[in-house]
Design a protein around this nucleic acid. Structure first.
Lengths: 318, 318
DNA sequence: TTGAAAGCGCTAACAC
DNA sequence: GTGTTAGCGCTTTCAA
């Protein structure tokens, strides 16, 4: 492996000058630059990233943390990684699984193994997590209110209210809700929307409410609960497309027709929503991925990259 | 940030001895070990991974390369990352997109930024790719026959033949095939299976054959071709669940009934197959992920981890 | 069983 | 413009 030292020996030019042309910082005369460039090609020189990292205390690597895998992880990661790569960052994926392993991953910030961290799904409390922000910027798509964690969140209240209203006007008086965990601020926002709507529309029924901490097996469980319900909602709204999809698939296995027997509404506007022909709510996760990276980049670098606008909206089945 | 040097200064013990207890190599007296351990806790010492990497010329990081995103990427990555994490490796994901960027990623092997590489979807020729194997082990799930690339491939011939036969016996005389690129050895194996079956069953019709290089928009395109066909196959087999799912979804949008109008068979046994209630072929991608990692690990380390057995099989819709 | 010393390959003051 | 020098934090001979 050719090093900068080999290049110096070969050309008779000092390491520092060579470093200058490789990294593009500082002045180097055209004649020397040419000699060095030629030698680089001839000797097939590739700078050692690890040595550079040690010296600069930077790895240009961002950690992407998720507790577990669910289909949206892949789509989100795809968006995040692409924007990161575009700006010279690579992405390390961690399926944290346990609180302990999540902490261990966060600690990589302290050793400069990771420059920054994005959190898709967390395990530890935001207080614990935010205590690592002094070692490197942290961002998430969750709705969290901490001074040192960037949250590119979407307020679910208005769009959720809007969708309930839309369903109501289309004749759905009994609407079910499959929601995420209550520790999630946007779950609480959704509940406020439900309650507020109910108050102004007393003839509507929004009693069917389920809460889940995870996405695995959830749609199936919700479907069983729906099937076991006497006064079944004619429409059910979900906190994730994937869960909604599993719900639909379970209903169909049980001889029900979707959307005739039950109109299912997802959230995310992911691939799977189109696949299942269900209406969904676009909550702009692609922009969120983008903006979450932009924040980290802007914290890490002197220049400023612009944020993208976000516009949550209803997406018809098509 | 506490360094090994700070520890040395504080305890009055040399850096080398401290290094020995941190890394667990070499003899250290119990008394000194205790002093060091205590100091480590007290000062909250976390070894700097980057410095270690530079010194050892190892990063314990494996590159996961895929040309583009499609749903199976996520599921595969999930399996791969988990087994890797279990053995102390983290995984860097690269969506390579272009031949040039793929090469650039491969070059990370030469600088010791990546210890090894797994290739899910490639762009450059295997000859080009394999020339990097001297810098670090490379594995893939593709069927490739190069001495220095580990291929944990499944021969699609027997299972594919078996499934055609199964469909035929269930009354499907006209079977369509949506296949991957012909440069793919297993695509050719599938074609051999089709042709061999046809030779021994002249009354069967297997003329509907489509070939694709990518997974995006493919299912929709195939569906349109199916709809435009006069003598439509009563069953279509696919090279990927995701493509099959898009096919189903497009047929349904066009008023067709699945499986009544067309029995769709996927390949992969991924989440989406269950979601769409379609039969599929389990080609053991989870084991392939496992074994692909095992190979890299075994090349990189003195100890030997065992491989998992693979048993491709038909999976009913359920 | 321990410590001194020599780097891994690169960057960045600083001096000239 | 360019070279000298001093590290980044760690591991690993080698000698004691």
């Amino acid at each position: 492996m050719t090093t900068i030292y080999d290049l110096a020996k070969k050309t008779g030019i000092s390491k520092s000058t060579i470093s200058r042309v490789v990294s593009g910082n500082g002045y180097v005369s055209e004649t020397k630059r040419k000699i060095i460039l030629d030698a680089m090609h001839e000797m097939n020189y590739i700078p050692n990233q690890v040595a550079k990292n040690l010296r600069k205390k930077r790895t240009n690597t961002i950690g992407f943390l998720t507790k577990e895998y669910f289909p949206l992880v892949g789509e989100f990661l795809n968006s995040f990684t692409k924007i990161a790569a575009k700006h010279g960052y690579s992405v390390n994926v961690y399926f944290t699984q346990t609180a302990d392993k999540e902490l261990k991953t966060l600690r990589l910030l302290t050793t400069h193994a990771l420059d920054a961290v994005f959190i898709l799904t967390r395990i530890n409390s935001w207080d614990t997590i935010s205590s690592y922000a002094k070692f490197g910027p942290i961002s998430t798509w969750h709705r969290v209110n901490r001074p040192n964690i960037y949250s590119n969140f979407i307020d679910h209240y208005p769009i959720y209210y809007h969708v309930i209203d839309h369903l109501y006007k289309n004749g759905h008086k009994n609407i079910g809700h499959v929601l995420s965990s209550l520790r999630n601020a946007n779950t609480r926002a959704r509940i406020r929307a439900i309650d507020d709507f109910n108050t102004s529309h007393p003839d509507s029924n929004q009693d069917f409410r389920l809460f889940y901490h995870t996405q695995t097996g959830t749609g199936e469980d919700a479907a069983k609960k729906w099937l076991a319900t006497k006064n079944r909602p004619s429409s059910v709204m979900f906190y994730a497309d994937f869960v909604a999809a599993e719900f639909i698939s379970t209903l169909r296995k049980n001889g029900k027709k979707v959307p005739d027997d039950c109109l299912v509404v997802g959230s995310d506007n992911s691939e799977i929503a189109h696949m299942m022909n269900m209406p969904t709510i676009d909550l702009c996760f692609r922009n969120q991925a983008h903006n979450a990276f932009i924040y980290l980049y802007n914290e890490l670098n002197p220049d400023r990259l612009p944020y993208e606008n976000q516009n949550p909206h209803w997406v018809d089945a098509y």
